[in-house]
């Protein structure tokens, strides 16, 4: 297996606050890694560093073979990142939004249909503006948008947030399918029981450092 993510003594700053404080972590391609830890531990910052959105100021950091300290923008094409926000344009209808994301990612129309089916978005919602959707429906559209990017690395912060039971099952299936296809998944969740049922490994993050790594049977 090749390494998808490698951090060695990596430091990332939010202002003067070290969000990552000498983090050491290696993740192989095809793994589904659950990040655990208390609020403010550095889970979201780690995801943002992996996506190239947050700069790694010292140490070593490679994602998908790209050195984040020199070429963090180039990794973004291969990554799908879902934060606490859903990245939706409030005035766009769901279909408008998916078409825009698909065009930006160079995805074909048939892939939009596939993403809609995988996230089980009802046809009646496709002509509804995203601001009129419920929190769970918005999350489904957000994740469908990520599918269109055909990512090699999935970075998800609380992907189950707001979803009903069917939506959670759809997300779990998506993550397993992605890993089975060779993609790597890193996600943070406070819903530990469900998250552990999907993950192949859990990594504990405390104070911007990875303190413990446990394989999940």
């Amino acid at each position: 297996m090749s390494l998808a993510v490698r951090f060695h003594e990596a430091v990332a700053l939010l202002g003067r606050y070290p969000a990552l404080a000498g983090l050491d972590l290696e993740i192989e391609a095809g793994e589904i890694v659950l990040l655990q830890g208390p609020n403010g531990a550095g889970k979201t910052s780690l995801l943002r560093c992996c996506s190239g959105l947050l700069e790694v100021s010292s140490g070593e950091a490679q994602v998908l073979g790209h050195d984040l300290r020199r070429e963090r923008r180039s990794v973004r094409r291969h990554v799908a990142m879902l934060g606490h926000e859903n990245h939706l344009y409030a005035d766009l209808e769901v279909m408008d939004h998916l078409r825009f994301r698909a065009s930006a990612a160079g995805a074909a129309r048939v892939e939009i249909k596939d993403a809609i089916e995988r996230m089980e978005i009802p046809a009646r919602l496709l002509r509804v503006s995203t601001e009129r959707l419920s929190a769970g429906q918005r999350r489904r559209v957000a994740i469908a948008s990520l599918i269109l990017r055909r990512p090699t690395l999935w970075l998800l912060d609380e992907p189950h947030a707001g979803l009903d039971s069917d939506g959670r099952v759809a997300v779990d299936r998506l993550l397993r399918d992605a890993a089975a296809a060779g993609s790597t998944v890193i996600f943070a969740s406070h819903e530990l029981e469900r998250a552990r049922s999907v993950a192949t490994r859990t990594v504990h993050i405390v104070g911007g450092q990875a303190t413990e790594s446990v394989d999940v049977a």
Binding site: L53, N86, A105
Partner: peptide, 15 residues
């Protein structure tokens, strides 16, 4: 509209 709901990050990630 680019500042709402994290769309600036999405724009940066868009390629």
């Amino acid at each position: 509209v680019e500042a709402e709901d994290g769309n600036r990050d999405a724009l940066r990630m868009s390629g």
